[in-house]
């Protein structure tokens, strides 16, 4: 029986993503897409956990975690409040 395929899930910090598209372009399995200027894990099941997106993301907006069996693999969307400085920037 082939070794059970590993499953990964994506933590996406929407408020920090600026839709630059770097992760989408360099994902070897074309897992990611931009929707309304934010990254989404459209084909999370194809993810091979190479972390290319995570390492190259300039905004720390995506993180890959290996699912431990029962964990479903839809993306976990985390809402981080905008910092005071952002109003100024």
């Amino acid at each position: 029986m082939s070794e059970q395929k590993k499953v990964y899930f994506h933590t996406i910090r929407e408020k920090w993503c600026k839709g630059c598209g770097i992760c989408v372009a360099y994902c070897p399995k074309k897992v990611l897409e931009l929707k309304d200027g934010k990254v989404v894990a459209a084909r999370a099941e194809d993810c091979i956990g190479c972390h290319a997106c995570e390492l190259r993301c300039p905004d720390f907006a995506i993180e890959i975690h290996e699912a431990s069996g029962e964990r479903k693999h839809e993306a976990e969307h985390v809402d981080f409040a905008l910092p005071p400085e952002a109003h100024h920037a």
């Binding site: 600026k18 770097i22 390492l55 300039p58 905004d59 720390f60 993180e63 910092p83």
Partner: peptide
């Protein structure tokens, strides 16, 4: 909260750099 994020002052993020600017990537490294 991820180990990685614990090194950041998260109340000050997102940062001011433009979309696609490489400075965030180097800071992450």
């Amino acid at each position: 909260m991820s180990e990685f994020l614990s090194y950041f002052r998260q109340d000050r993020l997102p940062h001011i750099w433009c979309p696609g600017c490489g400075h965030g990537t180097v800071t992450g490294a």
